[in-house]
Nucleic acid binder design. Structure first.
Ligand SMILES: Nc1ccn([C@H]2C[C@H](O)[C@@H](COP(=O)(O)OP(=O)(O)OP(=O)(O)O)O2)c(=O)n1
Length: 979
DNA sequence: TTAGGTGGCAAG
DNA sequence: CATCGCTTGCCACCTAA
């Protein structure tokens, strides 16, 4: 915490570091993006090669030399040619000899490794004649689905870790059985000691890095490597753990005397990296060590105290850090060790617990905790002894990581003491120091918590003579501080300077429960975000929502408000910023919408966000970052969400499921969730909302401050825009009658932009002729795997997109029809009455066994369209929502019941019979996504998710495969089977 | 006057 | 090659009623 770059840095604490400073620091402060610095001064790239003497441990970072690269690429081309020829001859052979054979290996691409029995060519024939493909090589592009091998060396095992590796017997037995047997039963890895293997894999596996944000795994991959993501999620995990295991009795009462020990690892990431570094030996006490991913514009997460002597700080770019090193000094770059970091942190917290000394241990972050001791007349501690005990115990248990401890009787004094203690020491703030210059003169303005870069520069401007906190304490009146920093912060600082915690800070101690309770949930990625088409944004938004909803479900919460924030490349910023795939200078735009009713439905929220994105009028190609926030979280228990498929009247319905053509359950008590969305969709459908907001702030990082040009924001522009937008917000909560009040946008100069990034009229008619089965309407899977270059172009979400532009009357007509409303009814009234009736009947609780039915097959409506009813619901979106809810509620200990699964299977088949294969694909995809996210969040497996995994592979994918054999309608060969 | 939306800022 | 620039919460300010 001590030495972040984000704090002003031309001052130092004499106690901690009294070495070289100011000129070096000016280099930091010149507000230029290093990239431009570099290219201006040293236009020749080789300057870096010659002069940046950086030692890498990470083998990934080694520069590959040119000739090797060339060989590699030519080799690849060769194989690609060969593969094409091979595929051709395979299909000819299949045509000639395989016609009468069951095509059980459809969609499989098999690669055979090493010696096998039966041998490679036999297997080859077997695969090809039964509809499969055979690959002779293994690259990312070859899309191999399974590797067949008898045995694998450790090295191969690591290399193949992400593949399904099976015994040849799988192929043989499947052919004998005349059907595709589950590969898992022939998995090679299972017959080995998995524990051992995965351990080695984790250590050695070099994962391919995904840098395309349109890749389905981008988010997961990015997060796996993002230090800031780790910090944030760890922090929330620690808070949750605290809440789960905490005894409120331990909360100190106001007025009790406390001793506070603030404990923090020294340069945590750097220490862990250095200690676990095996391939390179480095000395934390002799060499400057930093933890980073790359070599130039890569952020330094943590640097050791040697590096800090040169002025290097956490958050600084490597190139800048290198410049700060004296000639001849090598900067040691180590890779992140997230697993180890987590491990050391757990030990740290356990150790503190085991000391059995404290009334409370409050987590501040992964490497930092505040330990509270209540003083009574009975216990008279020796604070210094306790500090030493803590330090020894942690050092011993973590095998070499040092912590520093600051001890005092308030949080602020403990924190300042910690600052003095670092590195590798402790400091107790005695009574006599609290008001003494001997203590306060050691601190700079930015040592105050809550004072960062911006505020420190304010302080420095207003109090230019105050170079340390003692001077500030004497010079700054409470009035002037309040005027400068605002009311709250002003008095907070004033009190801090006198060693007192303000109420807000003390809340941590006296009300940890509400302090640690989660109030919002968000995802925010500003790296690697590059789109070319709106569909890609749509897909990305859905993935964001997917991620958030998985978490939301874990917490049993709904959200009633969503915010979308878009980072747009600033006009004068280069297309590609200095940092590879970074965001560069951006303007930020945001929009908040309320959902009519708290929800955790993916379809609903995604649609909302897509509309919001369109309303921001940002060309996809200009987007550099996207954030989705769920604000206003509501307990599911408090707000009983509608439980469509599981109400009693539906349960009765199960008796009718075998009567295929029986009439469907009337809507009476079964209200599809669509009514919840109505006002919002309607709102979104209105191009009115396509009013771009002015950029609120030029967002840039410290390194990129060179070209600051604050956007002017003419007032008339502002007010013109704000007002109708606010009106639109209000409309969200109104009935359709308000919709007519929409202001016209005919005269808006922005209309053209709006429509450009909104779907055209022609695309928008799906609801009126639902359920026509155009590809546009209901293809759900991602075409990523096929197209290679055009991710997410499957039109998968055009039905949602289409909603945006639906004419009001058509829209309402259809929804009322769906809802069983007559034309005079207000949708809002309907929502409310259904809410009531849902509460009356009580619904089933989360843990009740669920009955999942689909009621009958087809039904002719007045437009003579087929409708498959599912749970009395016929809209694709609503069916998806019910389906999704069902999955979520059966992911944990209570799995979906077999009976329900049979019903699901029936439903799937009838979809296929009526040609709705894309809906089935979509359902498959959705299940796959949910499971993937579930495993992202849960380390542990449950009955539920495991059962669903089996359903995914053996039922859904299997049925799709079989279906594709029926009528020569070939599915894309690379259906994502990732389990 | 209050209430609620929106943006700035900081921390790790 | 590079590189992984997150996420949460508080507070001030503004506007509407
Ligand atoms: N801008 C930042 C700040 C911190 N961190 C990470 C790396 C740090 O190791 C960890 C803890 O942050 P601290 O502020 O405690 O910094 P250090 O532990 O590195 O150093 P100190 O000895 O000052 O505590 O958080 C980061 O990735 N990026």
């Amino acid at each position: 915490m001590a030495d972040d770059i984000s704090k002003s840095s031309n001052q130092r604490s004499p106690l901690t570091t009294n070495y070289l400073r100011s000129e070096k620091i000016n280099v930091n402060d010149n507000n230029e993006e290093p990239f431009y610095n570099a290219s201006n001064r040293f236009t020749n790239q080789s300057y870096f090669n010659k002069n940046l003497d950086i030692v890498y441990e990470n083998p990934n970072l080694n520069i590959q030399n040119g000739t090797e690269k060339k060989d590699y690429s030519s080799r690849r081309t060769y194989f690609e040619d060969k593969a094409a020829k091979q595929a051709l001859s395979d299909s000819v052979r299949r045509e000639a000899y395989g016609k009468d054979k069951p095509q059980i290996f459809n969609n499989l691409i098999i690669y055979v490794n090493g010696y096998t029995n039966p041998d490679r060519s036999t297997l080859h024939d077997m695969v090809v004649l039964h509809g499969g493909h055979f690959s002779h090589y293994l690259t990312a592009k070859s899309k191999v689905t399974h590797i067949v091998a008898e045995n694998l060396s450790l090295k191969k095992r690591i290399e193949f870790a992400s593949y399904k590796v099976v015994l040849p017997k799988w192929l043989v037995s499947s052919v004998q059985a005349g059907k595709l047997l589950p590969w898992q039963e022939f998995s090679l890895l299972r017959t080995n000691t998995i524990g051992q293997t995965t351990l080695d894999i984790n250590r050695l596996k070099k994962q391919p890095q995904i840098t395309n944000c349109n890749d389905p795994d981008f988010i997961q991959n990015f997060f796996a490597n993002s230090r800031l993501h780790h910090l944030s999620t760890w922090k929330m995990e620690l808070r949750q753990q605290f809440l789960d295991s905490f005894n409120p009795v331990m909360i100190p009462k106001t007025g009790e005397q406390l001793t506070i020990f603030h404990v923090d690892f020294d340069c945590f990431f750097a220490t862990v990296a250095a200690l676990s570094s095996t391939t390179i030996k480095c000395d934390l006490n002799k060499e400057p060590i930093v933890v980073c991913h790359g070599s130039k514009s890569s952020d330094i997460a943590s640097c050791n105290y040697i590096a800090r002597q040169y002025g290097i700080k956490n958050g600084m770019w490597v190139s800048q850090a290198q410049k700060l090193c004296p000639k001849g000094v090598k900067l040691v770059c180590l890779p992140y060790e997230f697993d180890k970091i987590k491990e050391k942190s757990s030990i740290f917290y356990k150790t503190l617990q085991n000391l059995n000394m404290f009334n409370m241990i409050l987590p501040i972050s992964i490497d930092e905790a505040v330990c509270i001791l209540i003083r009574t007349s009975l216990n008279n501690h020796n604070d210094e002894l306790i500090c030493e005990r803590i330090r020894e115990a942690v050092f011993r248990d973590t095998e070499g990581c040092t912590v520093s401890v600051g001890c005092a009787d308030t949080l602020i004094l403990a924190r300042l003491s910690l600052k003095l203690a670092k590195p590798n020491g402790y400091f107790t703030c005695m009574k006599y120091m609290k008001d003494s210059p001997l203590f306060w003169e050691n601190f700079k303005n930015d040592d105050l918590p809550g004072i960062g870069r911006q505020l420190v520069s304010k302080l420095n401007t207003y109090y230019p003579r105050c170079n340390n906190l003692w001077q500030l304490r004497n010079d700054a009146s409470i009035e002037s501080l309040k005027a400068l920093l605002g009311n709250k912060l002003g008095s907070k600082v004033y009190n801090q300077l006198r060693g007192k915690d303000d109420d807000e800070a003390a809340k941590l101690i006296h009300d940890p429960i509400s302090t640690f309770e989660r109030k919002s949930l968000s995802i925010d990625i500003n790296w690697g975000i590059r789109f070319s088409k709106i569909e890609q944004v749509d897909t990305y938004l859905e993935r964001c929502v997917e991620y958030l909803i998985a978490k939301l479900k874990e917490m049993k919460k709904n959200t009633s408000q969503v915010t979308l924030k878009v980072m747009k490349r600033a006009k004068d910023a280069p297309i590609e910023p200095a940092k590879y795939l970074g965001m560069g200078q951006c303007d930020s735009f945001s929009r908040t919408n309320r959902l009519g009713i708290p929800s955790s439905l993916q379809g609903l929220i995604t649609t909302e966000l897509r509309n919001m994105f369109r309303s921001l009028s940002c060309p996809p190609a200009e987007v550099r970052g996207i954030a989705v926030h769920f604000t206003k979280l509501v307990d599911v228990a408090k707000y009983r969400q509608k439980r469509l498929p599981f109400q009693k009247n539906i349960i009765l319905n199960i008796n009718e499921t075998n009567k295929i053509n029986s009439p469907v359950t009337p809507f009476k008590d079964v209200v599809p969730d669509i009514n919840v969305t109505t006002p919002n969709r309607d709102n979104g459908g209105n191009l009115q909302t396509g009013i771009p907001k002015r950029p609120v702030k030029r967002v840039l990082f410290r390194e990129e401050h060179n070209n600051i040009s604050h956007k002017s924001s003419p007032d008339e522009y502002h007010s013109d825009l704000e007002s109708p937008r606010k009106k639109m917000q209000k409309m969200l909560d109104r009935t359709e009658s308000s919709v007519s009040k929409r202001p016209s946008i005919v005269n808006s100069p922005l209309r053209e932009i709006d429509t450009r990034y909104s779907p055209s009229k022609e695309e928008s008619s799906f609801l009126s002729d639902f359920p026509t089965r155009t590809a546009k309407e209901d293809i759900a899977y991602d075409t990523t795997q096929n197209s290679g270059e055009e991710y997410g172009n499957g039109g998968s979400f055009n039905n949602n997109v289409a909603n945006v532009n639906i004419e009001k009357n058509i829209y309402e007509h259809n929804n009322k029809r769906l809802l069983g409303l007559s034309n005079g009814d207000s949708i809002r009234d309907k929502i409310e009455s259904d809410e009531l009736s849902s509460q009356d009947t009580g619904g089933l609780t989360e843990n009740d066994p669920k009955i999942f039915t689909y009621g009958g097959l087809v039904n002719h409506d007045d437009e003579s369209n087929f409708k498959i009813m599912f749970q009395g619901i016929s809209g694709t979106e609503e069916i998806m929502d019910s389906y999704e809810n069902w999955i979520y509620s059966t992911l944990h200990d209570i799995p979906p019941s077999d009976r329900d699964l049979i019903i699901l299977e029936d439903f799937i088949w009838s979809l296929l019979r009526t040609g709705s294969i894309h809906t089935v694909i979509r359902m498959t995809q959705r299940l796959s996504s949910i499971l993937r996210n579930f495993s992202l969040i849960n380390k542990k497996n449950y009955n539920g998710n495991q059962k669903w995994e089996v359903v995914l592979i053996r039922k859904l994918i299997h049925i799709l495969n079989m279906h594709s054999n029926w009528d020569d309608e070939k599915l894309p060969t690379d259906f994502p089977i990732k389990y």
